[in-house]
Design a protein around this nucleic acid. Structure first.
Lengths: 136, 136
DNA sequence: CATATACTGTTTAGTTACTATACAATATAA
DNA sequence: TTATATTGTATAGTAACTAAACAGTATATG
């Protein structure tokens, strides 16, 4: 089989393996994928309002209201009045939310790193340089 | 940052990109992720019974009953009497199910291959050889 | 062999995470 | 000023799941 197809297949296998890791890690922290993605999005985009979350994940505003209810109940985010618009809410990640997403990302990364234990430093460098060419 | 961390991050990015592709492709074919995974599993494991699907995906037997109801209603799989055990059901993928999962995999692969269009033949070969060292 | 135990699949009631819709409050455009 | 759009919420309904109970069948054990 040609290399293009083999790399494509290997990418699918990486995706599947990492999806499994992700779904293994999250329940230990009593958090759902969408909750984790939301916290990550809010950390990257700190001035977001609820409708930004809806747009990012293709959810209705109603679904986001309920998602934020759950996140706020678990003290992972807080709704704050928006400094400019009184109809918007500024959504902020709490310290607990920050610590939680750090822990999860850390454990997730550790799992991924176990895939790479048998690579030499030189192989890792080559792999890094090649993967840097990806348009993502 | 060291190469190990950079490769780990890139693997996460690949997983996220491919997860997005996957969730983009499926709705066009009116099929859910678990339906697609089940068909793929049954094609790899042709003599499976319902409880095998439950074990593979961590579902209850009741959930599998309903999943198979849906798959059978869409003519993607068929429940057949088991040749040996009268309490089991042999689950077979139909021709329609086979064609559907081929189409989806094909479109999914095409999306992944677009990530690789800028690689030279030589780079693809190097990447393939490096990825072959992964324990997956 | 007989019967207790385990396995397989289904049904049903309840849960969770979503949508669609309607609504209220606020902001923007005409 | 007033019509229109935006933002968030509430509510009813849906899809995909679990837990539990059940029926039928297979297996283990005395």
């Amino acid at each position: 089989m040609e290399d293009l197809q083999l790399v494509t297949t290997k990418f699918r296998e990486i995706k599947n393996e990492l999806s499994n890791y992700f779904t293994q890690v999250l329940p230990q922290y009593e958090v759902t994928p969408i909750m984790m993605y939301t916290i990550q999005f809010l950390r990257k985009n700190p001035d977001s309002i609820a409708v930004d979350i809806a747009n990012e994940f293709g959810l209705t505003r109603g679904a986001v209201t309920q998602l934020l209810d759950k996140l706020e109940q678990d003290d992972l985010v807080q709704r704050k009045p928006h400094p400019v618009s009184r109809r918007s809410l500024l959504i902020q990640v709490t310290d607990k939310g920050t610590r939680l997403s750090d822990s999860i990302l850390n454990e997730y990364n550790n799992k991924i790193e176990r895939l790479l234990v048998n690579y030499t430093a030189e192989e890792l460098r080559s792999l890094r340089l090649l993967l840097d060419k990806l348009p993502i």
